[in-house]
Simulated scan of single mutants.
Amino acid sequence: MNIVLLNPEIPYNTGNIGRTCVLTNTGLHLIKPLGFSLDEKAVKRSGLDYWKDVQLYIWEDFEHFLKENIENKNANLYFATTKTEKKYSDIKYEKNDYIMFGPESKGIPEEILNRYKENNITIPMLPLGRSINLSNSVAIILYEALRQNNFEY
């Protein structure tokens, strides 16, 4: 599996997600611009001593990421958003799929969501706030994808 963070803004979330990725043998793709430096103590502190083991890929922009990972590998890419009705649990995930999450303050841009509307997924929640924390959202969807694949890491 692969987790993709488009323009992540909060180093603690990225550190936590990195730790989850290490312990599930999941690739972590970061698409620039990042809202922090990967050398920041906050990233390393939340990733603890796992950060050195993250399968980390850095991409200059969304189009470069798409060309190298989705088009060349004919992989599935899903977009986590609050702007759809299709539940993350309604998808049949494959072992090499990619799940993208947008920046914490605004989510994945509308033009991307509209371009790939059939691959938009959401975590059902009460409309009492904007969304569940990014690192929690990653864990929820990633573990469903792993469960469907019998936790084959």
Rank of each mutant, 00 (worst) to 15 (best):
N150M: 06
W59Q: 01
L66N: 05
E104C: 06
Y50V: 07
L113V: 09
N25C: 12
E63F: 00
N149G: 02
E118R: 13
L6I: 06
A145S: 14
M125Q: 04
N120I: 04
D53G: 05
S37V: 05
R45Q: 14
Y12P: 12
N76R: 10
K73L: 08
K86N: 15
N7Q: 15
K52F: 04
K41D: 10
E71P: 08
M100E: 11
L6P: 11
I3G: 01
W59I: 03
L5D: 01
T81A: 11
T20G: 03
N96M: 12
A139Y: 07
P124F: 15
L34S: 00
T81V: 12
M125C: 00
K44L: 08
N136P: 00
E60W: 14
N150Q: 09
E68P: 00
E71W: 15
C21S: 10
N114C: 04
Q55N: 14
K86A: 13
E118P: 05
L38F: 09
E60M: 10
F36I: 10
S137P: 00
P11F: 09
S89L: 08
R19G: 00
F36R: 08
K87F: 14
I112W: 12
L5P: 03
E110C: 06
K67I: 13
N72W: 06
Y153T: 15
L38Q: 06
I70L: 08
W59K: 03
L142V: 09
I99N: 01
N72Y: 05
L28M: 09
K67C: 04
N69I: 00
H29E: 04
G18I: 02
D97K: 08
I58A: 02
E85Y: 13
K67N: 12
A75L: 01
T82P: 00
F151Q: 09
N120M: 11
N2Q: 03
K95Q: 12
S89P: 00
K87S: 13
F65H: 10
L38A: 02
L128P: 01
T14Q: 06
I70N: 08
K106Q: 15
N114W: 14
N76P: 14
E85P: 14
E110N: 12
W51C: 10
E118H: 13
A80D: 05
D61I: 11
L48T: 07
N74E: 10
N150L: 08
N25T: 15
G102N: 07
Q148G: 07
E110A: 14
E40V: 04
A42R: 15
A139Q: 13
A139D: 02
T122R: 13
V4P: 12
N74A: 07
L134W: 06
E63H: 02
